[in-house]
Amino acid sequence: MKRRKAPPLYLARLLLVLTLLILLELAIRIGLINRFFVVLPSELIPQVLRDLVDREFLTLVGITFYETAAAFLFASVVGVGIGYLLWRSRRLGVAYEPLIAGLFASPIILLYPIFLVIFGRTPLAIIAQGAIFGVLPVILFTRQAFAGVSPTLLKVAASMNLSTRDRFRYILLPAAAPTIFTGLRLGLTYILIGVVAMEYIVQIGGLGKLVAETSLRLSTDELYSGITLVVAISVLFIYLTQRVENAVRR
C-alpha cells in the first residue's frame, strides 16, 4: 500500500467552496430556497465579475478596504503596544485588564453616535469606531500571550546574555506570536463587523452602504455581490496576518 501524495491544501479548499456553491445552486433550483432571498451562484459569479470592472462599485470596495486597513493598522500597533505594556508593568496590568475585558464584552457598536458627533459623517468616524472595537481583543490577547511565555525560555534568554532587543525578537515575540495573532484575527473580525455595520447604519462610504441600498431595492444579485466582496476583503486580511505570523515565528 503506497501512500499517495496529498493534493495541495488550496485545492481542497477550492473544492469545498465549489461543492457548497453547487449544492446551493441545486437547492435554489429545486425550490428548497427561495430565489427571492438568495441569489443563484451561477448568476452571482458573473455579477461579481461585472461589478469588478465597474468604477463606482470598485470605489465602494476601495473605501471599505481602506477603512478596514486603517482601523486594523491602528488596532494592531496600539493594541500590541498597550498589551505589551500591561504585561511589562504588572501593576498596570492588574489595574486595567478587568476594565478592558469589561469593555470588550459590552456592545461598543452602540457608541456610534459619539463617533459621528466627533468626526462627522466621514470615513474617519468609521475608522475610529472600528479601531476602538478591534483594539480591545488585541490588547487582551497580547497581554495574555506575553504572560504565557514559558519562564524556562526567559531563563534561556537570560543565561545566554541576550540583549533586550534580541530577547524580544528571538524569544518573546515568536513564543507569544500564536496568541497575539489569534487576538489580531479576532480584532479583524470585530473591525470588519464594525466598519460594515456602521456603513450600513449611517449610510456612508463603502460596501455596507451598498448592501443597505441594494437590499432596500431588493436587488439580490448586487446585494450578494457586495457581501462576496466583504468576505473577500476578510479573507485577504486573514491571509496577510498568517504570512506575517509565519515570518515572526522563525
Binding site: S150, L153, A175, R250
Partner: peptide
C-alpha cells in the same frame, strides 16, 4: 551578579524553542 558570559546552562525543564 548577572549571567557570566563563559557559562552555558542546560535546564531541567524542556527549554527547546518550539518554533525552530
Amino acid at each position: 551578579r548577572k549571567p557570566h558570559p563563559d557559562i552555558g546552562v542546560v535546564f531541567q525543564e524542556d527549554s527547546t524553542f518550539p518554533w525552530r
